[in-house]
Design a protein around this nucleic acid. Structure first.
Lengths: 409, 409
DNA sequence: TGAGTATGTTTGGGCGCTGAACGAATATAG
DNA sequence: CTATATTCGTTCAGCGCCCAAACATACTCA
């Protein structure tokens, strides 16, 4: 087997009182994710007693993760509660996305607000990896500087890449659309950075986009959905029961090479009619006659949207065809994973108004269970930012999941 | 949303010391699943201290779930340990499978041994549901009687059905191949049963087969695999990280209606070229010229295997074609779920020698990641029994996961 | 026979949750 | 304006659980 982890018999850690505390502290943090609440309300939501909540809140407050807000306006009989909220200055996460069509970075605080944003558009395919990593490192340096200016401490850096990531080794194994292979992105970026950085973690962009969507969707932790991230490549991040499913080797959600057009063009991967070939950004732009824009540094999406809005026939037909192909892929996803929601992200979020109809038509036809239970297809609320924001928040996840350990460190 | 469960805000239960105990007791049971061990060995495997293990073992022993075996032959210097093992008489589970081609039942004890087995072959499609349920109930009565004779207490009954199950309501929503709709199987079987039955739980056969495979595969709890269950219909049970994935509405693994042959025959579901139509048992038997056997009560599988072994051209070609179609479906599964193992169950287990080559050929071609990491395709170790045994063991799962609660009740 | 080693049990200590009681702050009734 | 009801946050004893260490037990080896 290739479990890859340590331990002679994969011993599942035993559990003791400290785990109880950890779990309940995380539950308190989660309860505050939706907004400020009084201790009594937290107790009601989590099922803990007020005594326990009080004790946990004290501890988290002294750790700087929570703040007490002024007494709230009374809402009825009885002593009014004092709202407790996530402390915006309790820590921040930096997210960077390295993508084919540009770099971007954000700074997100504990409450989930984006406090800083920067990007460097432009095709990265013709640049050397070292140059790209240096540019990305500069964006991180900027973000960390901005954090200090805002009185925040950057607790971690998350990096999103369009490729296959070895999470244990923290190495980008292969990113076909960038033409990269075997690059230790976190290590090299840290070396290229100016100051002292917190821990840098690497992950796949579709996975991070799904996490970003999960956390800002506001939806509960029992959610199941698939985020289909469109760019030059097409990937899917799969969230089942509120947990990201990564697959046994990190290949999960490999949607881009699902065969959807038996007679379609040949793909880099050797097969024929891969989804990526007939629904990827390159194909869409080519159909719309905009392929030359990419290398010129202009953001081609604005041009495409302009053409679509203007009713350009070629562009509209191209996007509709891409939507139909995408629908086939989504149908397979839904049939196998049985999620009731599919979220379109990346460029698909931008193109959603033009994609929705063709996708829905195919899905309604091909998804068996659609007759009993409707399938929701919607655009990502974060739009093209899903992956960067997800990367930044994933850096904060450790704090939210283990607030005590995080505060102590 | 359709979370369906109770609670105002989907409150995740808080955790207290009792949960710690529960968790650790379950860890002890799990450590003994692989065979008898001394307390010190259990401590080493679980990471608990010897003191804690001693206390938990005492409690479970007085609950009748564990037994002390005679002092083991010393294996070196030092005081020899005393082996502790799951108590075979600590409880048993009854499994029943209601399928298109017959009924079967097993009795399984805590250690996983099948202690009793019975079946009623014959096509169930032309019988009334009430008659079928009565016959199934008789099999359960028999198994419970047999349990008493063996000194076992039947702790639960699991029922496997080839259809869509509403787990909360415990109702079979639809079983196309049986022609059943909206049947409260557990309730009706319990009424039809002779004596007092323990709790009856209903689940989909592919899911239960996957669970059966998981538990008897001996593999650890971090396993990910898909069990593709072949019968008249084709279903898949998906196990990710050792947990069965059911999907948000129980439709997960709906593989039978994946389009694999665009020009194929029309399916009951309305689409064209569904996998089930070109790889299901009916199609295989028809191609082999054995379709008449089904209604005659003879087990057609033996006849088919005989023809295959004899080198019958039609039979061999039919199975090879089914294997190719199956390979397409499996490829989609692997690409999306990223499991490294696919297990063939049901009739596919029986036909595995003839299916292996055609399936593997297609999978190697269509699964992207196969180049980096090999995909294992193997036959179920339980063969056609996977679902029944899984059903029986699922009835014991509550005990294994919550041994203290189970013992107290 | 005595030293050495590993197993199983006992004991004291610490930690975290619970439940009940208590003071604090507000609304409502008279 | 005062008294009562209600809700919030805190305090405190009690209990259960795990851990670490010491102790008793059983076997090997010299």
């Amino acid at each position: 087997m290739s479990t890859g982890s340590a331990g002679p018999a994969a011993a599942p850690r035993p559990r003791d009182q400290a785990d109880v505390r950890r779990h309940n502290a995380a539950a308190v943090m989660a309860a505050l994710g939706a907004g400020p609440r009084s201790r009594a309300e937290i107790a009601a939501v989590t099922g803990l007693t007020r005594a326990t909540v009080g004790s946990i809140v004290d501890e988290l407050r002294s750790g700087g993760l929570l703040t007490e807000q002024g007494a709230r306006v009374p809402r009825g009989v009885g002593r009014p509660g004092i709202d407790v909220a996530l402390d915006p200055s309790g820590g921040a996460g930096v997210g960077v996305e390295i993508n084919v069509d540009g770099l971007s970075a954000v700074l997100v605080d504990l409450t989930g607000n984006v406090r800083h944003r920067a990007s460097r558009p432009g095709d990265q395919r013709d640049r050397r990896a070292a140059d790209v990593l240096r540019a990305a490192a500069r964006l991180v340096d900027e973000a960390i500087g901005e954090a200090e200016r805002l009185g925040l401490v950057a607790r971690g850096v998350g990096v999103a890449v369009p490729g296959l990531v070895d999470l244990d080794a923290q190495v980008l194994r292969v990113a076909p659309n960038l033409g990269w292979r075997e690059i230790a992105v976190p290590e090299r970026m840290t070396r290229a950075g100016a100051g002292a950085w917190p821990a840098v973690t690497l992950d796949n962009e579709a996975n991070l986009a799904a996490l970003g969507e999960l956390w800002s969707g506001g939806a509960g932790s029992r959610d199941s959905f698939v985020l289909v991230n469109g760019d030059v490549g097409v990937g899917a991040g799969v969230v089942l029961d509120g947990r990201l499913h990564r697959g046994s080797r990190g290949f999960s959600g490999e949607l881009g090479h699902l065969p959807v057009a038996p007679e379609g063009p040949e793909c880099r991967c050797g097969a024929r009619g891969c989804l990526e070939q007939v629904a990827g950004l390159d194909w869409i732009l080519r159909t719309a006659g905009l392929e030359d824009l990419v290398r010129s540094g202009v953001d081609p999406m604005s041009a495409l949207v302009a053409e679509l809005a203007a009713g350009d026939a070629g562009a509209n037909a191209g996007v509709a065809a891409a939507g139909a192909a995408l629908g086939v892929g989504i149908s397979a996803l839904v049939n196998l994973f049985d999620v009731d929601t599919v979220v379109l992200g990346g460029v698909y979020a931008t193109l959603f108004p033009w994609l929705e109809q063709p996708v829905r038509a195919v899905v309604d036809r091909r998804v068996l269970s659609a007759r009993w239970a409707p399938i929701t297809v919607r655009a990502s609320t974060l739009g093209r930012d899903a992956a960067v924001v997800g990367a930044a928040r994933s850096a904060l996840r450790d704090i939210l999941l283990d607030p005590l350990g995080g505060a102590a460190a």
